[in-house]
Amino acid sequence: MHAFSYERPATLARAVALLEAHGPEARVLAGGTDLIIRLRDGSLAPTVVVDLKRIAELEPGIREADGRLVIGATTVMTDIAADARIRRRFEALAEAAAVVGSVQIRNRATLGGNICNASPAADTAPALLVHGAVVVIAGPSGSRRIPIDGWFVRSGVTTLGRGELVTAIELPLPAAPMGSVHLRRTRRRGHDLASVTLCCGVDASGVTRLAYGSVGPRPVLAVDATGVLADRDAAPDARTGLLERMLAEATPSARSMRASPDYRLAMLRVLARRGVDIATARLAAAEGRR
């Protein structure tokens, strides 16, 4: 690994000042499960690495505030997958966090790092899209929040600006029950990046949210507000047509080594149908518990 200087700011203000001063020469370090690999292979060569893990305001943790669940950016997958509130109300996210890498990776990999790294295969991305997450950002001109749907640009690129970093990811607590699920296809069971990821969420008013990744430069969200997709009694043709339109933004690359475009598109359709079925069944179970 080439040499760099290491900064361990104690405050958010200091971290932002460092990032602003060094611009593209600086890199944020959270869990390092993406970054250290790129530092070692030389594809990133920052002169300054800014470690977020000793910043008082960025202590990892999950808390409820004003109708939202606020997940600190440095919270690791192990803790997200184990959190009772997330498992109960944001199942897709709990399931996504539980399949990231291995125990060793999940003990380090942060939620902030997963969305900032912005891999098209990032497992939490479709879940956050389905749950309507908001990204909380700190920067030179204070803090701002943007809906996750406006976050991903393309592989490795987000709408984060110079001097900015992610401090938290917020999930609005749904007023009515919602059923959700995370599904993926990998080449092998266990430890692998996904060839297709898909999350589905269905709420009590019949709105279905589908989000999918690994089939194009960025994860995509498609919403059916007509209630047709979640309606088991709807005409099969109507559901198929609707599903086709919702999946139309999938444009898998022929260059990816993990799976061919044909396989990905075929599996996307399988996962979408399965996702709607599971999310609908979970919604019914959640309503039954009320």
């Binding site: 361990r8 370090l29 390092g32 499960t33 192990t78 990776i105 380090r108 430890h191």
Partner: peptide, 26 residues
Amino acid sequence: LVGECGACTVRLDGRIVDSCLVLAVE
């Protein structure tokens, strides 16, 4: 050296990690 094989697994502050993906200063 890419976190795939686990041969470098150690326990750090009560949790196992791949030590190839952790800087010593961390």
